[in-house]
Design a protein around this nucleic acid. Structure first.
Lengths: 236, 236
DNA sequence: AATTTAATTGTGATAAAAACACTTAAAAAA
DNA sequence: TTTTTTAAGTGTTTTTATCACAATTAAATT
């Protein structure tokens, strides 16, 4: 037996929703699509899965080809398979989301790849069913971040507690009491205080912290609760 | 433009992990595969996605064709795309999991479809990478059930609180204090007490309850916490 | 030296979770 | 009919976690 005869084959694509945080707002990365249809319109990072690569490999390759990003947090989100989602030909798309430190790649992305960051509120129209993908990705990162420390992926390796709080307040669109926040964050044992201050944000300066990677991996599965009233969190 | 030329098309399949609970243990449903390769070996319910159907439609169709099940809880789990996962020809598979009331379909399944239920501990070897799918599905249902009332899908429409507790204890492999459990469960407002008892389980008999469907839908997204120390829950 | 700005720190009140044991209904056995 | 057996049902106390809340400090700027 060589093949499954009589079965129809179809195109399989990967689309990546790339999240970044610049200290101000949560943003996503879009690119101007380089081929027809919808050429020149804003799109997620996407491409076809090649015969010899797995889905994870495809998503990593596509992300690298279109943005230069490598070794970032990348997780499968959902597969979209409406028969009509691509007007040219049936294409099923496996969506991934990525979390990156926006500043680490900022110049590279805009100079070399003509990708652009957009705030959630001012996202342009994207092609096909990609708006649905973005919405689902937003839900998923809230959902997951409410329980696991994934948002650290969005920060530089050295960060301050006010920066971290700002990130959480952004993602969950809520205000958090800073005394309670720092207590909880420090209680996780995930942070190591450095003898160095970030003077950019204030006159007094805020101490830098970095992740305790050992605890990060061992406690990743543990439920966290940085968010006071997680009403806004909805299922994946 | 008619097609994306030069791109390789591939086979897309759907595999369903069907969970059931018989009052004793959590089980999964397997079927003897009806075609080559691996014909006659135990397998998840699977089949190829047809040209005109969405992924949700395909999973529902396949579940119905192979087990007669219809209208059950079915949710996309993950897409598996290792190039070598099917030895005959590259096939990417979208895995779904289903939750059903085992007794409702028991006879139908074994009489008409030659599918069989297996406890988690005594699952036979399944084909390809399906063991990985089953493991992931188990993780996911724990994860989700720790926060959302999905386990009710595994029970008959009328059930007792001891039955419900037994189910939770099984899924999470933990003992729960019955006073605390019933307090929490009743506090959700999800249950309606009936004037009828189940006499099968004990001499005294336990009152039947049924789901308050209105509250079920409105509170589905709310986080629940029936499980005392959810250490065993790991990410999706 | 005074002012400004944001970082840092602690405590008491309230709510939720956990630990814990006896009573009761009803069938079965004596 | 009485006693025994079995699992269902129910309350309180203790402990822990969460929430609300404000004064002090470091360091640059005026």
């Amino acid at each position: 037996m060589q093949k499954y005869s009589k079965q129809t084959r179809l195109l399989l694509a990967v689309d990546c929703i790339v999240f970044g945080f610049d200290g101000e707002a949560l943003k996503i990365l879009l690119i101007k699509r380089g081929f027809q249809p919808e050429k020149g319109n804003w799109s997620l990072m996407g491409g076809f899965v090649q015969p010899d690569e797995s889905l994870d490999q495809a998503s990593n390759r596509i992300l690298k080809e279109l943005t230069g990003l490598e070794g970032v947090y990348l997780e499968q989100l959902h597969t979209f398979g409406d028969p009509q989602r691509d007007p040219i030909e049936r294409t099923v798309s496996v969506a991934y989301f990525a979390l990156i430190d926006i500043n680490k790649y900022k110049k590279q992305i805009s100079d070399d790849y003509h990708a652009e960051w957009f705030t959630m509120k001012r996202t342009p129209k994207v092609i096909f069913d990609q708006q649905e993908m973005v919405e689902l990705a937003k839900k998923r990162i809230r959902y997951k971040a409410a329980m696991h420390p994934i948002l650290f992926e969005l920060l530089p390796s050295k960060f301050t507690i006010p920066q971290l709080q700002n990130l959480y307040e952004n993602v969950f669109n809520t205000a958090i009491d800073k005394r309670n926040f720092s207590k909880r964050v420090l209680a996780t044992g995930l942070l190591i205080k450095l003898n160095e201050k970030d003077k950019a944000g204030s006159k007094r300066g805020a101490y830098y912290y970095q992740l305790n990677m050992h605890n990060y991996y061992s406690k990743f599965q543990a439920f966290m609760n940085f968010i006071p009233n997680p009403d806004s969190i909805s299922a994946s």
